[in-house]
Amino acid sequence: MFRSMAKFMLALAAIVPLASHAQETPSIKLGYAKCAHCTPLSLTPQHAANVKLEAIGFNTGNDVLTALLAKSIDVAQVTYLHYASALDKGFDLIAISGQVNGGSQMLVANDLPIKENDWASLKKVIADYKAAGKPFRVAASRGNAQDIHMRGAFAKQGIDVNRDVQFINIPNPSDHVQALRRGEVELICSVDPFATQIRQLNAARFFAYPYDQAAGKLTNLIVTRSDVIASKPKAVEETVRSIVKVNALMAADKPLFVETIQKVTGLDKAIAAGAVENLYPDYKMYRSSAVALGAMMRDLKYIQSDVSAAIEKNMDYRFLEAATGKSKSALGY
């Protein structure tokens, strides 16, 4: 009897660790860039349930995408531009949620006779530079949403980024203000909060919001890889659920949005408050606009192939549907 009981206890001891291991909470590493749009993602761990969520900040969206493709993280905040570019290169990328849109500003050097929202005055100055044999230098961080917003807006106004102006790539948006102060560029399309910082420091003047193009205000997209979905579908769902919760907080509580931007970027309250006015929390994924963006990128020779089918195929609405209780037709499909 005693021996039988001892054997039972030993067998039970062997099983319990396995059961405990099976019930471990799955983990997700979520990467985001340190721009104003993206900072709310730093709050997702505290609003996540049934998933051990770690939010990791990166300097740029390109860095985040690189980490995702290298399998250093599981889920990434990138832009619709990154999404189309990655699909053009054949990378494994699945879009699972929107996040925040907007946040782009076009700024011009203080000494230029260019009027706010006056494209005719901009085109005249560009023509004057060409006549004088000088390059009119425009800058952005190549590969981010502001880059494609600017290129699309220019194209709609008949300005050729490759022929009429000289494009300067400044990878880190935090360096934009110094480029303007040093007189290295005439116009820059920057991301908030850095665009608002530039204006408040009087390093440049506001020209326009570059939203009059196929991409509109489309900016941030949450993506993952197919292997993550296959191995951790419930964890992916809970990650999306936490993003939806945080978006609702940002939309309802602008002071919290401002505080979050301050905490992540280190910029002061006035800059963060200004940036929030140009940001639009939005978890929907806009399929038709994303396809239009892909077409525009191809027209601009930003990508080489037609990614329309891939953009549609790789948008997985299941997790948003589960998190919101809404159908994909109500979520941007």
Rank of each mutant, 00 (worst) to 15 (best):
M1R: 07
A6M: 11
L10C: 09
L10V: 13
A11T: 14
A11S: 15
L12E: 11
A13W: 05
A14V: 11
V16S: 07
A19M: 12
I28D: 09
K29H: 06
K29G: 07
K29P: 04
G31C: 00
A33C: 00
C35S: 13
C35F: 06
P40W: 03
S42V: 02
L43N: 15
T44W: 08
T44V: 08
Q46T: 10
Q46N: 14
A48W: 05
A49V: 13
A49R: 11
N50D: 15
K52M: 05
L53V: 00
E54Y: 12
A55G: 03
V64K: 01
V64S: 00
T66I: 03
L69I: 11
L69H: 06
A70K: 08
K71N: 04
V75F: 01
V75I: 02
T79C: 02
Y83G: 00
A84R: 15
A84T: 02
A86I: 02
L87I: 04
K89F: 02
G90Q: 01
D92G: 10
A95P: 03
S97C: 01
V100C: 12
G102V: 07
V108E: 06
N110E: 08
I114N: 03
K115N: 10
E116Q: 11
E116L: 13
N117W: 04
N117P: 01
W119T: 03
L122E: 08
K123H: 15
A127F: 05
D128T: 05
K130E: 13
G133N: 01
P135K: 09
F136A: 09
F136S: 13
A139K: 03
G143K: 01
G143D: 01
N144L: 13
M150E: 00
R151N: 05
A153L: 14
F154N: 05
F154C: 09
I159Y: 10
V161K: 07
D164A: 09
D164L: 11
D164Q: 14
F167H: 00
I168M: 02
N169S: 00
P171V: 12
H176W: 10
Q178K: 04
R181T: 11
R182H: 13
E186L: 09
C189Q: 03
S190Y: 04
S190E: 03
S190F: 15
S190T: 02
V191P: 13
V191S: 13
Q197E: 08
Q200S: 10
L201S: 04
R205N: 09
F207H: 02
P210W: 03
D212E: 15
A214H: 01
S226I: 01
S226K: 06
K234A: 08
E237S: 06
E238K: 10
T239E: 03
S242P: 08
I243Y: 05
I243N: 15
M250V: 12
A251Q: 03
V258P: 11
E259R: 12
Q262M: 10
V264T: 04
G266Y: 04
D268I: 04
K269D: 07
A270G: 05
N278G: 14
L279S: 12
L279Q: 14
Y280P: 13
M285W: 15
Y286L: 14
Y286N: 15
R287A: 13
V291H: 01
R298L: 15
D299T: 12
K301M: 12
Y302D: 12
S305Q: 08
S308K: 07
A309I: 03
E312R: 07
E312K: 14
F319N: 03
E321M: 10
G325V: 02
G325E: 11
K326P: 05
S327G: 14
S327N: 09
K328P: 07
L331T: 05
G332R: 08
